[in-house]
């Protein structure tokens, strides 16, 4: 990484959901702020700004990452995919449809981050067990749903069986 002047705004160019976008950022500007307030891509939400809640997760070069723990200048020249790019033709993905069907969201503030984590995860682990899925989801905080609808939605889409000890 080149040495940057802290007091200067530097041009940052990313491929945002398939399109080249350029904005300017001081070196300390968070990628979350850059996306939201410099490029106007508001779909990515900010929930804690200290890397715990996962709401601000996007994919950088395909890998799910927290934008509140990433500087905008670190994303320069890279591909950034956000929730706005999941359904480019206006048709929701099967996972988005399943979220709706299973009431996997209420206020929706954590949803973008969860969808972006899942889009990365399900490419790598197409049929997770419920335990594996819950383990992955534990990197995200949702205060509305109790996660039940989210788990159901994913299991519905992957067609995987669930394993819960009979009570």
């Amino acid at each position: 990484m080149p040495i940057m002047n802290a007091d200067t705004r530097h041009p940052v160019t990313i491929t945002l959901n398939g399109r080249s976008r350029t904005g300017h950022a001081h070196p300390r500007m968070l990628l979350s702020d850059f996306l939201r307030h410099e490029l106007g891509a508001h779909g990515t939400r900010v929930g804690c700004e200290h890397g715990v809640c996962g709401a601000c997760t996007v994919r950088i070069d395909g890998v799910a990452q927290r934008t509140c723990l990433t500087l905008a200048v670190q994303a320069d020249g890279r591909r950034v995919d956000t929730v706005e790019g999941l359904a480019p033709e206006g048709r929701m993905t099967a996972l988005q449809e399943a979220f709706r069907r299973h009431h996997a969201l209420q206020c929706g503030f954590c949803t973008a981050g969860i969808l972006m984590s899942l889009s990365d995860y399900l490419e790598r682990v197409p049929r997770p067990t419920e335990g594996e899925l819950r383990d992955m989801l534990s990197g995200h905080l949702c205060r509305c749903t109790g996660y039940a609808g989210i788990v159901r939605a994913v299991m519905d889409v992957t067609g995987a069986s669930t394993e819960v000890a009979d009570v």
Binding site: R45, T82, V83, A87, M92, L105, G108, A112
Partner: peptide, 14 residues
């Protein structure tokens, strides 16, 4: 849900 699932929600900071 349609707006919230596609990033089109408009919250206070947006």
């Amino acid at each position: 849900d349609a707006a919230l699932l596609t990033g089109a929600g408009r919250y206070g900071d947006d």
